[in-house]
Write a protein that binds this DNA or RNA. Structure first.
Length: 306
DNA sequence: GCATGTCAAGTTGTG
DNA sequence: CACAACTTGACATGC
């Protein structure tokens, strides 16, 4: 079992900067690029710091925030690293980070956000999504991440048709993206049952989010879904990815979807204990929640098996 | 200095 | 029909 932190820290002094298209647009291009250069170098340095920090804390995986290089794919203010005054320094920093991660066996992944929708019937949405994925592919190559995980997107009244469209996009993706692409069940549309056979058929590893599964059940037990998910990773030689979280206001009444600060140990699937897999902890207390969960699970692993 | 509104993008479900 | 939920905090602005 390898536990992962998602994107940010609560207490540890690791900070990422950003900017908006709106503020960039008020500046001449040259000044835009200077500003972006400073932010990108800051973020590349803090990514390295993030990995040093998770390594020190005994955390074995890190999900890298998508806006590491803010607005890079924006139609009006987008840019390439080569455009930035410190582009070369930024590249070097990412290479250091890649070497550090490999040496310390820290698994890296990406989770592009909800705007990446390969199943959309709108060609512009798909084109933007591909552009965004290629950005993630570039980052993943640079720092040595092995997973770019997305959701299946919208349904548009026809789940099968939507997945069909997603499948038809796959050949348009670069190898950098395609070899890392995974699909995750969500909490409104696509259950594990919806995705598992599709993933199997098109050799896409399935990322199993047990919280989403509990919010949107499909008749599969957690153990069944876990085993099938694990099968979908077999050919890749990579470890299964799972996501865990707890509902902010409990399972009784109220909306279970918002994430709690910490993981309630009773939400952690017993069948994951001791399994060879990476578990991203989606909790608002960030590294504090990962550390707390790791401590609790250590206790359960040592307990006699019944 | 500090509080507050804003921020590229999609889709779905709710009020 | 409009807006909030996904998730989210840092930044820009204005007092």
């Amino acid at each position: 079992m390898r536990f992962g932190l998602c994107c940010l820290f609560k207490k540890e002094p690791v900070l990422f900067r950003t900017t908006t298209a709106k503020s960039l647009l008020s500046l001449p291009r040259e000044v835009q690029l200077q500003k972006l250069s400073a932010i990108c170098f800051h973020n590349a340095s803090n990514l390295h710091l993030a990995l040093e920090t998770v390594q020190r804390l005994g955390i074995g995986a890190f999900r890298i925030m998508s806006p590491l290089f803010p607005r890079m794919t924006h139609p009006a203010v987008g840019y390439f690293l080569e455009d930035l005054p410190e582009g070369e320094k930024i590249r070097q920093k990412m290479e250091e980070t890649r070497i550090f991660a490999r040496k310390n066996d820290i698994r890296l992944s990406f989770h592009p956000d909800q705007f990446v929708v390969l199943s959309s019937p709108h060609s512009q949405v798909v084109a933007n999504s591909i552009r965004e994925l290629e950005y993630h592919g570039m980052l993943a190559d640079a720092v040595g991440a092995d997973v770019i995980n997305i959701h299946a997107g919208g349904v548009y009244g026809d789940k099968f048709g939507a997945l069909q469209r997603l499948k038809d996009i796959l050949p348009d993706l670069s190898a950098a993206v395609r070899k890392r692409l995974t699909l995750e069940n969500d909490d409104v549309s696509y259950t594990p049952r919806d995705l598992l056979s599709f993933c199997e058929r098109f050799s896409i590893p399935f990322v199993y989010d047990v919280h989403h599964h509990r919010c949107l059940p499909d008749g599969l037990s957690v153990e069944q879904a876990t085993n099938l998910a694990q099968d979908s990773w077999k050919e890749t030689g990579k470890e299964l990815y799972g996501h865990v979280s707890s509902p902010r206001s409990g399972w009784q009444g109220g909306n279970p979807k918002p994430h709690a600060d910490y993981i309630d140990p009773t939400d952690f699937p017993a069948c994951w204990l001791g399994r060879k897999m990476t578990i991203d902890v989606e909790a608002k207390a960030k590294e504090l929640a990962v550390i707390a969960l790791m401590d609790q699970m250590k206790g359960r692993l040592d307990a006699p098996v019944r």
